[in-house]
Amino acid sequence: MANAEWLTEHVQYIKGLKSPTATQSLLVELAAIPNPTAQESRQLDKLVRLEKINQKADVMKAEAARMLSARREDQRKAHTRELIDLGGVVSTVDFPVDRGTLTGALLWALDQFRADGDLQRTLKKRGDAFIAERESEKKVQAQGSTEATAKAAAEKVSA
Rank of each mutant, 00 (worst) to 15 (best):
D111K: 10
Q39M: 12
D111R: 09
L26V: 00
Q112V: 09
S136V: 05
H10M: 08
L47C: 02
V48F: 11
A142N: 07
V140K: 14
L119T: 02
A78P: 04
R126V: 05
A22Q: 13
A22S: 11
I53C: 02
A64K: 08
V93M: 04
R49W: 04
E63W: 02
E51F: 03
M60W: 05
R114A: 15
H79L: 11
W108Q: 13
L47S: 05
I14P: 06
L27I: 10
A152H: 03
A105Q: 11
Q43C: 00
K15A: 04
L50M: 11
T103F: 13
G87N: 14
I53D: 12
K18H: 11
R76S: 08
L123Y: 01
Q39G: 08
R71Q: 15
A153T: 10
L119R: 07
E82A: 12
S19I: 05
R121A: 15
G117K: 15
V59T: 13
A129V: 04
A159T: 00
K138Q: 07
T149N: 14
V93E: 02
A109R: 11
K15W: 02
M1G: 13
K15P: 00
V157Q: 07
E137G: 12
T37N: 03
R114P: 00
T149F: 15
A2R: 15
A38V: 12
D128P: 03
L17V: 03
N35F: 08
S91D: 04
E5A: 14
L119I: 03
K151I: 10
L86N: 02
E135P: 09
P34V: 07
T146A: 14
R121Q: 10
N54P: 03
L7T: 13
D94Y: 03
R114D: 12
R99Q: 13
Y13T: 06
Y13A: 10
A32P: 04
L102S: 05
Q141K: 12
E155M: 06
N3F: 05
W108C: 08
R121S: 12
S145Y: 04
I131D: 08
L106G: 01
M1T: 09
E133D: 14
G104W: 06
G16I: 03
G16C: 01
A132T: 14
